[in-house]
Write a protein that binds this DNA or RNA. Sequence first.
RNA 1: GGCCCCAUCGUCUAGCGGUAAGGACAUCACUCUUUCAAGGUGAAGACACGGGUUCGACUCCCGUUGGGGCCA
Length: 532
Amino acid sequence: MRVRIAPSPTGAMHLGLARTALYNWLFARHHNGKFILRIDDTDLKRNIKEALEPILRGLRWLGIDWDEGPEVGGPHAPYFQSQRAEQYQAAVRELLERGFAYRDYATPEEIKAEKEAALAEKRSLRYSRRWMAETSEQRARFESEGRKPVVRLKMPQEGKLVICDLVRGHVEFNWALEQDHVVQRADGSCLYHLANVVDDYDFGITHVIRGEEHLSNTPRQVFIAQSLGWPLPEYAQMPFVAEPGTKNKLSKRKAKRYLKNPDFAQLVEHGNRIADTLRLETDPDTFNPVVLDFYEKVGFLPEAILNYLVLLGWSLDDRTEHFTREELVRVFLLDRVNRAPASFDPRKLMAFQVRHMLAKPVEERVDMVLPYLHKAGLIPEQPDDGTRTAVARILGAAGDRVKVAGDILDYADFFTADTELEYAEKAFRRRMGKQGAVELLRRLRDRLADDGEPFEVAGLERLMRGFIEAEGVKVGDIIHGLRVAVTGKQVGFGMFDCLAILGRERCLVRIDRALEKAAAMQTDAGENDERR
RNA sequence: GGCCCCAUCGUCUAGCGGUAAGGACAUCACUCUUUCAAGGUGAAGACACGGGUUCGACUCCCGUUGGGGCCA
């Protein structure tokens, strides 16, 4: 079995393409077949390499490898349509010779007039073939008028086509309703549908697994193949991936509009927060959740994307949702593909991400996260063991708060110098402004300074218990101020984890600084009072 | 406009003539709690509509409505 995807190098890897690639790849791997990557670059003028790169990278990132295609070659090379013009021309000649296509000398104006007439009469458009030339005399006559020919398919005038689609079952088309589609332009270049059929035949494609939007294009492709005496591939037209909240096809160009969807907007915002700290480009045209790049940059796991994507139109049963790549290869079958389009749900995607993330051993998560800390200038490229340990402890304590690798930047304050820690002003004022809060913190500081216990979670917990008992206060009275003093923020993971990760020295420095700042704050307030 | 496709909780889906219509994400409540999460417990939530077929339809057939795709 041989399957393929034939993406056009558009400069970005669209989620829908990623899913089609995934289905094709799973099908090939499950059945021990070949997955072929062919590039539809006929309309592309320049920079194919640059425009193709994101697609190749995206596939590799997802772990979708191709057996034949760009960069890996194969027996049917080249795998670029732009380099196969001759095969297409030959097919057109053959079609012409067999009488399944004809030269058409109508001018664009004449065609347009026919279309308008059809529209006015509210009937389906059908070309009259008035300028069809099948004999050399006819051709000579039209050419003497200075006309240039295109080549059109001579579609059957009657009968039905029944396609047995692997996803949709029987689908019927009326031949008489099909157009005499152009397969070759006046300049000699060939059109997409013809090229596709030729390539699929030449490459020995047995199963065409593609988006449902191609369903209505199938008759003309069948016609071409049959006219040339070629065997037909099996067709499996998948439902497309729809926008969040609607059933419209998900489109890269509409990414800005999707921002109106709160879930989509939230995901974008999440990405932007990370990208901003790293000073990455966040133009919605290139950096948004419709494009695979987004996920890679922000630190998603490819297996999470894969897992989410595969479920957008396919299911194994009524309860299994979590799959690894290997499991998918084992269980994926085309006959469990759904027929209705599925909307992209950013929240559910995130849920999968979290699940896969937490399933990873801490060491692997450390490796994912380190580059982000480095890119943010917080740690050297080759961090020492101490840093690794600290990161591992942060990840352990943070749990699912680090949903994507880039989220580690939320804990940047562990890596900034103690003397440069920035305080969230509002939180600071709120917590330290409380009656007696500063004094309480000062006393806790002294306990932390000379307590003999090891500076670890359990010991710190014991210390705190003793402290609040002795002071006759509640945990809540001290811990919020302590958190702001030590981390600069009012939210975060376990307080004792924070303290332990930083270590006694750093904690004391930070508390002292906070106490100073609080003192300054009080003086200011005092001066203000006097002025009033 | 023509043709084609699609239709189960808000979303992804299970169901393949007899079910209390199941699961997941999201939502809500309670609980746990040093904050934010997470966790635990529970709740709410769907067969688009109308006709058939059948002892019996979410399930099969037809139509309507709605959504979408392709071609123009």
